[in-house]
Design a protein around this nucleic acid. Sequence first.
RNA 1: GGAGGAGUACCCAAGUGGCCAAAGGGGGCAGACUGUAAAUCUGUUACGUUUCGUUUCGAUGGUUCGAAUCCAUCCUCCUCCA
Length: 378
Amino acid sequence: MFKVTKREGIARRGEFTCAHGDTVQTPVFMNVGTQGAIKGAVSAHDLKKLGCQIELSNTYHLHLRPGDSVVRQLGGLHRFMDWDGPILTDSGGFQVFSLSGLRKITEEGVTFASHIDGHRIFMGPEESMQIQSNLGSDIAMAFDECVENPAPYEYVKASCERTLRWLERCKSEHDRLNSLPDTINRQQMLFGINQGGTYADLRVWHMKEIAKLDCEGFAIGGLAVGEETQVMYDIIDAVEPFMPQEKPRYLMGVGTPSNIIESVARGVDFFDCVMPARNARHGKLFTWAGAINIKNEKFKLDGRAIDGHCDCPVCQSFSRAYLRHLFVAEEMLAMRLAVMHNLYFYNSLMERIRTALDEGAFEAFRQEYSKKLSGRAN
RNA sequence: GGAGGAGUACCCAAGUGGCCAAAGGGGGCAGACUGUAAAUCUGUUACGUUUCGUUUCGAUGGUUCGAAUCCAUCCUCCUCCA
């Protein structure tokens, strides 16, 4: 269930509820735990402390390891990873893009050569729905093809037409699975995904078509996969008017703090991105004055917290100099602390966006931070 | 004391007459990262007035048009014999 509680221009403040956890306050950032764990030794228990409202995991990866039937036998993903909040599972559609050298697409679905051992795995709309049902997530994503940008118009057109047909198949399989008595989470929702590359006409056509299907939410996929940032914004601007007002909108895989602020301004409610976790593992930490590379020599004797205005558990206790030392010495703790900080930062960024929306001050917030957060801090 | 071996850039290590300011690895410095094949990948690492010049391969001297590479002496380290 979703309702918009406040608006400022196109930007929306909302509340979302599903079968698990408390009401989700939107706009929200979903913390990515692809294989049922946040990379960098961060557990679901840690996520609680970091202000995470929704966790995201991946169909393809969990199907390969440990296997969705294993997860199901152990009570579903919530119990398996001991996270009682909402879980969204991505469908495997992104792997059609990221593993493009290891797969073949047909009308029926996609055959992957496992990135682990090369064995063949067929995944179509039905398989993706079955796996996500076994995982018991709260939101299942439609199985789509995420197309790289830029791509030829004719290819994108054929692809998004197929993605629409796949959505119809996802929908009927999803409804069937939810009606079975022994399904783990019979309240699982299905979100459709808009595609169409960088072509506004295809995007709008596709959005109008998928909006006819009764999905509980709609995502914009296939962005931030090669195109210029402004092109991404232009596509969101083009598609947004055709996204149902009363349903959540999810911009998949985005993005930088600035991308998030700019996309909230364009009417997006849900986000996810590997960036805070991956960048953290690589030593790039977010602060309210811009990002820093904690491995830089200039932090060798810096006794300050990563961010003086951050309330996260890391900033309460440790100095930049200590974090730098942990990175240079390749201690595992370096990644754990860095990931915890960055996730906390993203979650508090969303909280500040929500507060600004509540107070009718989002545009001012956007003016102050959109640019600043994409720069460098000292 | 005798015999043999070795000294190359921050470290390890290739190179044994010109294509060598010198492979490769490590370390250092910096950059990238957007629904995670990522604790990954990329660049850079003698000096300068930088499409070129200067100095450099333990030291000094020599051979040669040309030397990290050949010769002499010296210094240092290692192994074996006494």
